[in-house]
């Protein structure tokens, strides 16, 4: 039996043996956590709108984002967010809170390597791919749109 065949049989066997995460519970938890975070954001938006009824929808949205980000970073600093994430899984990191947590947790963790090569360089260890890809995609969309609008 050659190595490749042996390895693929072994992988199949391991796959069958490995305990499955209780996927229904995980989905339900992600659903509840994700829904709760979004409702919390909606609530902040409604409160802001009730104080400043003339504010346009984009500015309200920006305020909502900033509030959720700020709260996430504070929870991360107090060491609470990772407990929420353990419960919520994708429910906590798919909303903007996950982005904020990944930046804050890296900043806190890697400050021991100094402000330049620690915080400065490693802050984007997890969030970097999101920013890099996001900027790249937006440029692609923008340039395509620009070229189309020329004709």
């Amino acid at each position: 039996m050659n190595k490749q065949q042996r390895n693929s049989e072994y992988l199949m066997y391991v796959e069958n043996q490995s305990p499955k995460s209780a996927w229904f519970t995980s989905l339900l938890r992600a659903f509840i956590m994700g829904g709760t975070i979004c409702c919390f954001g909606q609530m902040i938006g409604d409160v802001i709108k009730s104080f400043f009824p003339t504010m346009d929808i984009l500015t309200v949205g920006a305020w909502v984002n900033i509030s959720v980000i700020t709260l996430t970073i504070l929870l991360t600093a107090f060491g609470v967010f990772d407990l929420l994430a353990k419960y919520g899984g994708a429910g906590t990191f798919i909303p903007i809170s996950g982005f904020a947590n990944s930046i804050a947790s890296c900043a806190i963790e890697y400050k021991k390597e100094g402000l330049v090569f620690g915080v400065g360089a490693k802050m984007f260890y997890v969030a970097g791919p999101v920013l890099v890809n996001g900027v790249a995609y937006s440029m692609i969309v923008g340039i395509i749109y620009f070229i189309i609008s020329l004709f």
Binding site: S26, L27, L28, R29, A30, F31, I32, M33, G34, G35, T36, I37, C38, C39, G88, G89, A90, G91, I94, P95
Partner: peptide
């Protein structure tokens, strides 16, 4: 709640 939760559940 439904839309936010659903997106997260799909990711999960």
């Amino acid at each position: 709640f439904a839309v936010g939760g659903l997106i997260c559940a799909i990711a999960e």
